[in-house]
Design a protein around this nucleic acid. Structure first.
Length: 272
DNA sequence: CCAGTATCCTGCAGGC
DNA sequence: TGCCTGCAGGATACTG
């Protein structure tokens, strides 16, 4: 569910709630997630420690606490929540971190494609998920870097956009939106996207991601910030989820296809 | 190495 | 109403 703008929205919101707060207790249960949830590791790493910063790498959150960091991924359905201790916890709340001001932060994730895991000092550098991540799409040198990443590849550019080893943070919504903005056909092989078009794609990506962050992300169904507020970028989507509706640029109907096992919507008339 | 597919899991919408 | 199918904002293990 959450892509870079949603994760960044969560990061900012969490940062405001946890900085300088210390952990008084953990409620968690062993359960299969993308990484098995391990309550004991969480307790040992967090209890009594103080949060010092909240970072984002791609779609991963890193909450620095004590000697280590809490690594969180929200998968498709994961949600962080900050609430008063003692209030009802939603279904599928797999981990709850109690703070010293009678609030608690919770991870709930019905589909369990996400995870929460404590990394001790030093483990961050060798973490298999973090190690694979490519460059951040908001980096100032994205346009200069993209040709070296995409031009050697024959896979459809849409698939390349979703490959976190190349550029880390783009997901299905913003890939479709950036391709529409830069008028590139999603199935065009990376090697056949001109350097000029890759420059357009870079700027489209950065613009759409920045705009989405400024709107608090995109709420299609159930994304919400930790305080429960929704993202308002959905009203600005041009193509995602809009198959058969008229292209906002040329009025011809948008088409939905599947590539790399993911659906994507585009305009067959103005994306080439 | 690369590209493509299957898989993990729950919830929900739509068809019958 | 109930049952079934397919699909959902992701990552990765595996195959050829």
């Amino acid at each position: 569910m959450p892509e870079l703008p949603e994760v960044e929205t969560v990061r900012r919101s969490l940062e405001a709630c946890i900085l300088g707060r210390s952990v008084t207790g953990i409620d968690a249960h062993s359960i299969a997630m993308r990484r098995p949830l391990d309550p004991e590791t969480l307790r040992a790493g967090l209890t009594g420690e103080t949060f010092s910063s909240a970072r984002r790498k791609g779609k991963y959150l890193l909450l620095d606490v004590g000697e280590g960091s809490l690594l969180i991924h929200l998968g498709m359905s994961g949600r962080m929540q900050v609430a008063q201790t003692g209030t009802a916890r939603p279904a599928h709340t797999h981990a709850t971190i109690m703070l010293d001001n009678k609030t608690e932060i919770r991870l709930n994730d019905p589909r369990r494609f996400g995870f929460i895991h404590f990394l001790s000092d030093g483990e961050e550098a060798t973490d298999p998920s973090l190690k694979r991540l490519g460059i951040d799409p908001l980096a100032s040198d994205l346009a200069a870097t993209l040709p070296a990443l995409y031009r050697p590849r024959r896979a459809p550019v849409k698939n390349l956009l979703l490959d976190q080893r190349l550029v880390a943070g783009i997901g299905n919504i913003y890939a479709a939106e950036a391709l529409w903005r830069s008028r590139i056909h999603p199935l065009r092989p990376g090697a056949k996207v001109s350097v000029n078009r890759l420059r357009r794609l870079s700027y489209a990506l950065q613009n759409v991601l920045r705009e989405a962050i400024s709107q608090g992300g995109t709420t299609i169904k159930d994304f919400a910030a930790p305080d429960g507020s929704q993202g308002y970028f959905a009203v600005r989507l041009d193509v995602y989820g809009k198959e058969n509706r008229p292209c906002p640029r040329c009025d011809r109907p948008l088409k939905k296809i599947t590539t790399g096992g993911r659906s994507t919507t585009y305009c067959p008339a103005c994306q080439r």
